[in-house]
Amino acid sequence: MSQAPILQVQDVSKRFGGLQALAHITFDLPQGEILGLIGPNGAGKTTLFNCINGIYPPEEGRLVFQGQDITGLKPYHIARRGVARTHQIVQPLEELSVLENVMVGSCFGHEQRSLGESEGIADEVLGFVGLVERREQPAASLNVAQKKRLELARALAARPFLLLLDEVLAGLNPTEIAEMVEVVRQIRDRGVTILIIEHVMHALMNVSDRVIVLDYGEQIAEGTPGEVANDPKVIEAYLGDPKLAERLMGEE
């Protein structure tokens, strides 16, 4: 944990018209950590992801990835440096097969693999997320849970250094959630740093090393899951629910 952070978010702000979507967000993400990002709906979590991976540049502030300034770079530049993400609303390439979807990730990610190599990587990743039997199917024919896995597989096939996970657990049943949490842990064990947005609180609290809380674009708390769950500001943000800590830390 003593080495330089893989990602530094420095004073990042973003407005949409009159809405302050992000206000002076600042944090460091050390190599190999799983950092959770929580907050009520509309708090700016996905906006922060969009800034980090270049969908739109922040108006103020800097983003530093592996010691280099990546502020204002296009999504494909950032992808090629080794950042991959999943989308909250799944974005499968519908008419392409599951295999081809994952190969796109590997071909155009930071390793820039050839088609032949990508097929091997894609098969391996599909095995890891449990979609290998569906490799020839068009992506459109998958169900939601499978599409979520496909998103993850595509991101993993890029062999990223940093993985941004946007609600990969939403819409999954408890068994699927437990499986996915296990998958996320295994990804980290392979040396990938993870920034994760999640509404399924207990899962997020379990899997994260540290958590940052956003509310109306402001960074209101930061710390270990335990610290954050007992933070009065966080409790207030979640409608003043005094049982929040128990809810967050409770039930597996």
């Binding site: 991976n53 969908i55 296009k74 999504p75 494909y76 992808a79 090629r80 991959a84 993400r85 989308h87 974005q91 390439l93 796109v104 990730g105 155009f108 990610g109 930071h110 595509r154 890029a158």
Partner: peptide, 9 residues
Amino acid sequence: DAAEVMGVV
């Protein structure tokens, strides 16, 4: 958009 996020220039 998704293609760009995956690194397609």
